[in-house]
Amino acid sequence: MASQGTKRSYEQMETDGERQNATEIRASVGKMIDGIGRFYIQMCTELKLSDYEGRLIQNSLTIERMVLSAFDERRNKYLEEHPSAGKDPKKTGGPIYKRVDRKWMRELVLYDKEEIRRIWRQANNGDDATAGLTHMMIWHSNLNDTTYQRTRALVRTGMDPRMCSLMQGSTLPRRSGAAGAAVKGVGTMVMELIRMIKRGINDRNFWRGENGRKTRSAYERMCNILKGKFQTAAQRAMMDQVRESRNPGNAEIEDLIFLARSALILRGSVAHKSCLPACVYGPAVASGYDFEKEGYSLVGIDPFKLLQNSQVYSLIRPNENPAHKSQLVWMACNSAAFEDLRVLSFIRGTKVSPRGKLSTRGVQIASNENMDAMESSTLELRSRYWAIRTRSGGNTNQQRASAGQISVQPAFSVQRNLPFDKPTIMAAFTGNTEGRTSDMRAEIIRMMEGAKPEEMSFQGRGVFELSDERAANPIVPSFDMSNEGSYFFGDNAEEYDN
């Protein structure tokens, strides 16, 4: 993207840094990872977990959730003011799984939030270390993106479920800051804005008074975040219109849905970061690795190297396929839920299948599930090659597409044709070009129609051997075009429920 120079890199967003050079960025990201790792080690000690239990991804998720809940100030305040039966607002906890007599047992633990905050700050040299908290939120978000298709949420806001490739980060909490905003897809931002506008339509006082002023500035800020994701002048001009509207209503909703559809071809720039579970960072720190000293990046080879040398386990339900569970977590670790499966298959070195073909449910185990038949197995999170994460949407291309997802959002900077089903997408653009945004709409449609099938995206960008740390010898991959490109292809993934 041309304006790259004016933006802070995501590592800076990730670490609240002012302008830093590459070495400083690597050190501050490393410091953040160190903090998460030290916190995780301490929690495993508190909970008396064995090494194996500490490497269980379900335990990692519970521990991450506990610290996120302990620092969720708004919710904590709300819980104190609106006490609900049987919930102690000062405590947080969740299921911890232990191996007892050759069987997995679930144990519900409860801790004072104050105590968890103390352990977290102690692991982070006394700081609140917001960057580390956001990092864990993005890992949870990436896992949700890989596990669930947001059909219901899309339909509720009037969008087409086939636009799911635009929904990265749709389950990120509001408090995820600049680093969170960077990884949100165009569809996620559109959905947040539509929800806001709908509230304004239904509630006369939404934009009024002292609160209304705050609401208005939040609305304009979200519009600017979305505008910054678009790469064409016409899309940005249309966002200006939406932002400046005196009284946002149905016309703005129409414009936003139009823009979301246009992003299936004229893709937005959305950041991709490899955020790993805390149970990967903990053992690495415990083994003596100093992330701050060595430096770390979320968008280069580092996460690949770390996963190459990590042992992570997962509980497996009786009829689940461990290899499929591994694929789910591998995609989440690489922030690749909406990437082209052919690119992923090449990088991973084994075939990556669409969601609907995987015999696996989510990673988390519900409290009512029976533990008797639970097994555990090693997650295979290694890769054959590594590639640089991208934040450009890439230019655009036609490809055989599917009944489910009709476009992709690249996660890796790797040369390819970008699949999208042009006739299906263009069919949504018939007729409606009147109104105050008509010239911009016409211009956007013209650009979409001009998108050429034979153009290559990320020209000359390749993948790298894991021994090639400096990215000196790019390998331009070859793809098996007979395979499906979309992950949520004609899909039956479970729906995400809060």
Rank of each mutant, 00 (worst) to 15 (best):
M1R: 09
M1A: 08
A2F: 01
G5I: 00
R8Q: 15
S9L: 15
Q12Y: 00
Q12K: 15
M13V: 05
E14N: 13
T15M: 03
D16M: 12
D16Y: 07
G17I: 11
R19F: 12
R19Y: 08
Q20V: 01
Q20C: 02
Q20T: 02
N21S: 14
A22T: 15
T23G: 10
E24N: 02
E24R: 11
R26G: 03
S28Y: 01
V29F: 07
G30D: 01
K31T: 05
I33L: 15
D34T: 07
G35F: 09
I36L: 09
R38M: 10
R38T: 08
Y40F: 05
C44E: 13
C44N: 13
E46H: 06
S50Y: 03
D51W: 00
Y52R: 07
G54I: 04
G54C: 09
I57E: 06
Q58F: 07
S60Q: 09
S60I: 14
E64M: 11
E64A: 06
M66S: 12
M66W: 09
V67T: 08
L68G: 10
S69L: 07
A70H: 05
F71I: 01
F71V: 11
E73N: 05
R74N: 06
K77D: 00
K77W: 02
E81T: 09
E81I: 13
E81F: 13
G86P: 13
G86R: 13
K87H: 06
K87T: 08
D88M: 06
G94H: 08
I96Q: 04
V100T: 08
W104E: 03
R106T: 08
V109G: 07
V109W: 02
V109Q: 11
V109M: 07
V109Y: 02
L110F: 09
Y111H: 13
D112Y: 13
D112F: 02
K113E: 07
K113H: 10
E115L: 08
E115Y: 07
E115H: 07
I116G: 07
R117Q: 15
R117S: 13
R118N: 01
I119N: 10
I119R: 03
I119C: 13
I119P: 05
A123H: 06
A123I: 07
D127L: 15
D127A: 14
G132H: 09
G132S: 15
T134R: 02
H135K: 11
M136L: 14
M137T: 10
W139I: 11
W139V: 06
H140T: 10
N142L: 10
N142P: 10
L143V: 08
L143S: 13
N144C: 11
T146Q: 08
Q149E: 04
Q149A: 04
R150D: 09
R150H: 08
T151R: 07
T151L: 11
L154F: 01
V155E: 02
T157N: 06
P161K: 09
S165V: 03
M167Q: 09
G169S: 05
S170I: 05
T171I: 07
L172D: 00
P173N: 08
R174G: 08
R175H: 04
R175N: 09
R175Q: 02
G180K: 08
A181S: 12
A182H: 13
A182Y: 12
A182N: 14
V183C: 09
V183Y: 09
G185H: 11
G185V: 04
V186L: 13
T188D: 09
T188H: 09
M189N: 02
V190I: 12
R195Q: 07
M196F: 08
I197P: 02
K198Q: 14
K198A: 08
R199E: 09
I201S: 07
N202D: 01
N202L: 11
D203T: 01
R204N: 07
N205R: 03
F206E: 00
R213E: 12
R216P: 06
R216G: 07
S217K: 04
A218N: 04
E220K: 08
R221H: 08
R221T: 03
C223Q: 12
N224H: 14
I225V: 15
L226W: 11
K227I: 11
K227M: 11
G228R: 11
G228P: 11
K229V: 05
F230K: 01
Q231L: 11
T232W: 08
A233S: 00
A233K: 02
A234K: 05
Q235I: 06
M238W: 01
M239L: 07
D240T: 13
D240S: 12
Q241W: 06
N247Q: 06
P248L: 08
G249N: 05
N250I: 08
I253L: 13
I253Y: 07
E254W: 09
L256H: 03
L256P: 07
I257F: 14
F258T: 02
F258W: 04
F258R: 08
L259S: 11
A260G: 11
S262I: 06
S262G: 13
A263I: 01
A263K: 01
I265F: 00
L266W: 11
G268Y: 01
S269T: 15
V270D: 08
V270M: 05
H272P: 03
C275N: 13
A278T: 09
A278E: 04
V280N: 10
V280L: 11
G282Y: 12
A284T: 08
V285N: 10
A286W: 15
S287A: 02
D290M: 14
D290E: 14
F291I: 09
F291M: 11
F291C: 13
G295R: 07
V299H: 01
G300M: 10
G300F: 09
K305P: 05
K305N: 09
N309I: 02
S310I: 12
S314Y: 11
R317Q: 07
N321F: 07
H324C: 02
K325I: 02
S326L: 07
S326K: 07
Q327V: 10
Q327I: 11
W330R: 04
A332E: 05
A336K: 00
A336W: 00
E339Q: 09
D340F: 10
D340E: 10
R342V: 03
V343F: 02
S345P: 11
I347M: 12
I347P: 02
R348P: 09
T350I: 04
K351Q: 13
V352A: 09
S353E: 02
G356F: 08
L358V: 13
Q364L: 13
Q364E: 01
Q364C: 11
I365Q: 08
I365L: 15
A366M: 05
N368K: 13
E369R: 04
E369Y: 14
N370Q: 14
N370M: 09
M371H: 06
D372H: 07
A373E: 00
A373L: 09
S377Y: 03
L379K: 03
L379M: 15
L381S: 06
R382T: 02
S383V: 13
R384C: 11
R384W: 05
R384E: 04
Y385F: 13
T390G: 04
S392Y: 01
S392I: 12
N395Q: 07
N395T: 12
T396M: 02
Q399N: 00
A403L: 09
V408W: 02
V408L: 11
Q409C: 15
Q409T: 15
A411W: 03
V414N: 01
Q415R: 14
R416S: 08
N417R: 15
P419G: 11
P419H: 13
P419M: 13
F420A: 14
F420I: 14
F420V: 14
P423R: 15
P423K: 15
T424N: 13
I425D: 07
I425S: 02
M426S: 10
M426Y: 00
A427E: 00
A428W: 02
F429Q: 01
F429A: 01
N432M: 12
T433A: 06
R436H: 10
D439S: 00
R441H: 15
A442I: 14
I444G: 06
K452Q: 13
K452L: 09
P453K: 12
M456R: 15
M456Q: 14
V463G: 09
V463H: 05
E465V: 00
L466K: 00
L466H: 15
D468S: 07
N473T: 11
P474H: 01
P474S: 04
I475K: 01
P477G: 00
M481Y: 03
M481D: 00
S482N: 15
S482F: 02
E484W: 07
G485F: 15
S486L: 14
F489A: 00
G490T: 01
D491F: 03
N492G: 09
A493E: 02
